[in-house]
Structures are given as structure tokens and as C-alpha cells.
Design a binder for these strands. Structure first.
Length: 575
RNA sequence: UGGGGAGUCGGCAAGUGGUAAGCCAGCGGUCUUUGGAACCGCCUAUCGGAGGUUCGAAUCCUCCCUCCCCAGCCA
């Protein structure tokens, strides 16, 4: 535990910029923090926390919260705690705790020494509960769960007091101690706050504070058989850590009176302030741990880190960068309005980052053999290719060229439609960085499939330009057949086929059957063998790709992160 | 029907009494050895609705409408 430290002079809040570089105005939470700091509230300190329950993997919705909480701390000279909200051992696991560490760090934030667990506070929380009992503000109820529900009333009808509501302080204390000592079976009793069963806010109708639940806890093992509820543990954990601004999502807004009630009832020295914002919703995906767990358990995807998943481990494997995700989180803003962000905004942020940083390479997804009849057999020459036109310092690489090549099946049309500028019978195109070639013949097999395209080249066009200055409308990429690396390439598309799968009766029915396409024999330029998992690049004209951990030195596997914008596809779609 | 929130361009989102930023998407164009990138235009929103206050309102007041959250011993 870290005690609040003396007030340090607040540094000027960092000037926030959008991706485009224009200044942005502070969101409503930052406005609150600015005011609090100006007025000296909380001694001018800013302490936030990111409090995940380790019951699943972090997803893009969490990224919004992480960026907000850690961003606030950084901008206002404070700190942000990473706190595992581990008050329900039935759902929590070490695996999730480890994944949370990995994902937060990967996103680019560090909590330093400030890693906490609600379970570390179990003893203190227990003592606070006894204090509440002593003050006549909590009681042990012996109604069953069903009876409690029946007594709670409805949205419009007040609840009724439990017959156990007026037990003496002594009896309550005795029973609560016996609850802790394990003298009762699960569910026999429960500790409740004594507030108001007629409150119009259902949260305030004597909320449960502690339940008996025999379950081995990932961290405390079998030390406890009673566990605190979120509504009880959360404000007190914030208080113990001297958190100043406790940022959470909208659904907890109605719980704020209870949050404050506990701090006042226990007369705590620190008074953290709960502030609620709208959670992230993204088109064509689901962002709820429950649903993501179902996708994993139901084998609808290949695990939490399936590249189609909106989990941080999934988008990482897909090739999204932390920089892009942070930029995305900045762009979507923070507000209280329920909203649904277009996934294209995320994709834009990813492309923007990848365009600037990824080396360009040649990869042919659906190969078709091309033979340059006029090129000598057995000859090999090397062409220098620019690694990244956006970054001259990235330099160049050497790419081998020979008589037999692979080109993209999509780059050839026997009967080219209007505006199709690629290869077709009789047409001349540029093989990028190499030669101008002209298609002379198409060779087919018995079934009529194209097995080979035969071309001639203009030796004078070495490098890609003809000395006579003639222009060519298309430039296509290629890979030397003899030098090609055989690879598996996985193409991904949106996981769901509808914008808002959450609105569906059964969101599982709306899974996109074409969300994954595996191309077993793509042909890549030789430099692509043996790249480490996670290595990012752009396959020219196709999209951004990254090496997948499933690859081996002899058979790399590449994931398509995103396609490049494809204006030809647009033209073609319009007919 | 109780309580708590929210309603500004197709999607996010600025604006906090002085006469509606920006981004994404979309559309058109320039350029191009990635039909990528970049660049240039367009995208003509009166601000959920109706009243009212005011010289002047998205911004203040009133009433209404719509949407979201809450009846776990989940978080």
C-alpha cells in the first residue's frame, strides 16, 4: 500500500493532439480533474486506477479505459494503479491475471510498483465490515437468496424489511464472526448494509456486502470462505489506495450513492470520486467478456488470441500496434452518450500507423506462373526495391528475378473489363522494379484452368522504364518462382456479418462464415522466411501482414492485418 | 408506471448566450514504378420536439418525446 504523498506541484497538462495534429478540447472527465486540481481538491493529487476482474482477457473496450486512466495519470502528474478486482473466486484465474499484465504492458502503460489486488485488502475490508456492524449500519440476514429477492420489491414497489434486519449489534457481530470462521454453509447468511428497503434506487435497498462462498481463491487460497461484493470492495479499495478519481462505466452510475455511503459511513480519510463514462461499442464485433468467453469455449474462434477477436491479445496477433490502438482511443473521445463506433475508424488508425512503419515486400497470395520467354533460362538478376517510400531511412533490399515468376491471379484477366489496367493478352504492364512485359499467350490444362502465362520482356526497360518513354498503365508485383518461399497466409474479415450483433436474438447466428480464409500456398519473396512472430510488413498492393507464431522456418505463416484501400475493387463493384 | 443517465451531420465528437470545429465513412479530382500513400474539393447538420426568456440560444426556463442502465448472495 502506498500512502498519499505530499502534494507535488502539478505540471501543465500535456497538450492533447488528434492524429491529424489539431488540438482537442478536454473531455468532461479531464475537465473535472482540471477543476479539482485548480481548487486543490484531493490536495491536488491525481490517482486513478484500472481495475479489471481477472475473469477473462482484456479487449478493446478495456483499452479505452486503460488509455483514459493511465492517460489521466500521465497528463496530470499523478499515477495509475493496476488493481485486480478479484472478489469472486468462482470466476477468476491466474491465467487471466497474467494475460492482463501482458496486455496492459503491451499497450504501452506501466503501473510501476502500483500493482494491487482487492484480495490484499480482505482483512481490512473485514474490519471495516465489523465497524459497520458496530455502528448499526450492517446486519447479518438469514433469508435465502430467493426470499431476499422477494423482499427487494420491484422497480416501482418498495421492498420489505427482512425479519432479521433488527438483530442486535452483538448478535450481528457474533454471526458475522462465525460466518468468517466457516461455521455456516454457503448461502446460510449474508451481511447486508442497513440503508433503506424503500429507496427508489434499488441499489440502496440493503445491498449485500459479504456472502459465504467456499471456493479456492487464486491468490488467497482457502484462507477465506466469505468474500466481499464488488459494491463494497470497490470504493474501499479505492479509498485504501488513496485513489482520487475512480473512473468507471455508465452502468455503475446508480451505484454511486452506495459508493459514497460507504465512505461516509466509515468516516474514511480519503474520499475518492466515482465518475462514469460510456463504454466502447464497435460495429461488427462484440465487446463483452461473457460473449467473448462463449466464442472461445464454443470453439467459434481459435482461442482468446484468435486474430479475429477484439481482445488485445487477438488484435496483437492480428498485427495491430499499440500505437494505433492508443491513437484510436484518443480519437473516439470520452463522453456519457451511448455510442457505437464504426470499426473503420479503428482500421484507419491501424493503417495510418502501419503505412508509416512497415517495410514493403512482395508476396503473391494466389499464384499464377508466368514465363518470360525472352529471358534467358538459368539467369538471375537482382533488383533494388524500396523498403518504405514513407521512410527513406528504411533503405532498400535486393529482390531476385528470373525467367519464371509468380504473379497474382487477380492481376491477370483474359477478357479485361474497362479500367482494368493489369495484365491481359497482348497488353504490356510493368513488373515492379524489373521490366515491362507483354502477355503473348495463355496456357491451359485439360479442365481449362490457366496453368501458365507466357510473356516477352523489353530488355531495354530494365528497372521498369522504357527508354522511349512509353507509359504503361499497370504495375504489378511478382516473385521469382525459383526463389519463392512457400507460405500459409490467413486472411481475416469481420467476425460478424451485421453491424450490431448485440441487437440480435442470437448473436452467434450472425457470425461471418467467411471471417477466416486460409491460403495454403502463397509465394513470398525470400526475405520473408524466418521472420519472428509479430514481424509486421506490407505486401505491396495487397495489405498489411504479420508473421504468425504458427509459422516455422520452412513454412512461414502470415496473417493479413488489413487490406490496403482498394480503389479497383470499388470500381469493379460499381460495375 | 420508481430511480439514475443520455439526445449536435451516415458514425464518433467539439461547442458552456453571440450566430454549428475536427475526424471516420462516402463522393469527385490531382499525382503516382504500390489502382497504396499524399494532396485538393464536395459531404448545403439550425443542434430530439413544442413553447418561453433574450437584441441574440445548440447553449437559460417549462412541458413533452425517444433511447440506455438498475429488481445477481456477478463485476
Amino acid at each position: 500500500m502506498t500512502e498519499p504523498t505530499a502534494t507535488a506541484p502539478a505540471p501543465e497538462p500535456e497538450k492533447k493532439l488528434t492524429l491529424a495534429g489539431t488540438p482537442t478540447s478536454p473531455d468532461f472527465i479531464r475537465e473535472i480533474v482540471i477543476e479539482d486540481q485548480a481548487s486543490g481538491k484531493h490536495g491536488g493529487r491525481v490517482v486513478t486506477r484500472f481495475p479489471p476482474e481477472p475473469n477473462g482477457y482484456l479487449h478493446l473496450g478495456h483499452a479505452k479505459s486503460i488509455c483514459l486512466n493511465f492517460g489521466l495519470a500521465k497528463e496530470f502528474g499523478g499515477r495509475c494503479h493496476l488493481r485486480m478486482d478479484d472478489t469472486n473466486p468462482a470466476k477468476e484465474e491466474m491465467e487471466y491475471i497474467e494475460a492482463i499484465h501482458r496486455d496492459v504492458a503491451w499497450l504501452g502503460f506501466s503501473w510501476g510498483e502500483h500493482e494491487y489486488y482487492a484480495s490484499d485488502y480482505f482483512e481490512k475490508l473485514y474490519q471495516h465490515a465489523e465497524t459497520l456492524i458496530l455502528r448499526g449500519l450492517a446486519y447479518v440476514d438469514s433469508l435465502s437468496a430467493d426470499e431476499i429477492r422477494a423482499h427487494r420489491g420491484t422497480l416501482t414497489a418498495p421492498g420489505k424489511n427482512s425479519p432479521y434486519r433488527d438483530r442486535s449489534i452483538e448478535e450481528n457481530l457474533d454471526l458475522f464472526r462465525k460466518m468468517r470462521a466457516g461455521e455456516f454453509p454457503d448461502g446460510a447468511h449474508i451481511l447486508r448494509a442497513k440503508i433503506d428497503m424503500a429507496s427508489p434506487n434499488i441499489t440502496m435497498r440493503d445491498p449485500a456486502l459479504y456472502r459465504i462462498r467456499r471456493h479456492t481463491h487464486p491468490r488467497t487460497g482457502d484462507a477465506w470462505c466469505i468474500y466481499p461484493m464488488y459494491d463494497y470492495a470497490h470504493p474501499l479499495s479505492d479509498e485504501l489506495e488513496a485513489v482520487t478519481h475512480s473512473v468507471c462505466t455508465l452502468e455503475f452510475e446508480a451505484h454511486r450513492p452506495l459508493y459514497d455511503w460507504l465512505l461516509v459511513s466509515l468516516d474514511t480519510p480519503n474520499r475518492p470520486q466515482q465518475i462514469e463514462f460510456a463504454r466502447l461499442n464497435l460495429t461488427y464485433t462484440v465487446l463483452s467478456k461473457r460473449r467473448l468467453l462463449e466464442l472461445v469455449n464454443g470453439k467459434f474462434v481459435n482461442g482468446w488470441d484468435d486474430p479475429r477477436m477484439p481482445t488485445l491479445s487477438g488484435v496483437r496477433r492480428r498485427g495491430f500496434t499499440p500505437e494505433a490502438i492508443r491513437a484510436f482511443c484518443e480519437r473516439i473521445g470520452v463522453a456519457k452518450r451511448d455510442s457505437m463506433v464504426d470499426v473503420s475508424l479503428l482500421e484507419h488508425a491501424v493503417r495510418e500507423d502501419l503505412n508509416a512503419r512497415s517495410p514493403r515486400v512482395f508476396g503473391v497470395l494466389r499464384p499464377v506462373k508466368v514465363v518470360i520467354e525472352t529471358y534467358p533460362e538459368g539467369e538471375v538478376e537482382h533488383f533494388d526495391a524500396v523498403n518504405n517510400p514513407e521512410d527513406p531511412s528504411a533503405g532498400t533490399r535486393s529482390v531476385p528475378f528470373s525467367r519464371e515468376l509468380y504473379i497474382e491471379a487477380d492481376d491477370f484477366r483474359e477478357d479485361p473489363p474497362k479500367k482494368f489496367f493489369r495484365l491481359a493478352p497482348g497488353r504490356e504492364v510493368r513488373l515492379r522494379y524489373a521490366y515491362l512485359v507483354t502477355c503473348k499467350e495463355v496456357v491451359r490444362d485439360a479442365e481449362g484452368n490457366i496453368v501458365e502465362i507466357r510473356c516477352t520482356h523489353d530488355p531495354a526497360s530494365r528497372g521498369g522504364n522504357a527508354p522511349d518513354g512509353r507509359r504503361v498503365q499497370g504495375t504489378i508485383h511478382w516473385v521469382s518462382a525459383a526463389h519463392a518461399v512457400d507460405a500459409e497466409v490467413r486472411l481475416y474479415d469481420r467476425l460478424f456479418s451485421v453491424e450490431n450483433p448485440n441487437a440480435e436474438e442470437s448473436y452467434l447466428d450472425k457470425l461471418n462464415p467467411a471471417s477466416l480464409e486460409v491460403l495454403p500456398h502463397a509465394k513470398l519473396e525470400p526475405s520473408l522466411a524466418g521472420k519472428p512472430a509479430g514481424w509486421l510488413c506490407q505486401f505491396e498492393r495487397l495489405g498489411y501482414f504479420c508473421a504468425d507464431p504458427d509459422g516455422t522456418p520452412g513454412k512461414p505463416v502470415y496473417n493479413r492485418t488489413l487490406t490496403l484501400k482498394d480503389s479497383w475493387a470499388k470500381i469493379e463493384a460499381k460495375g
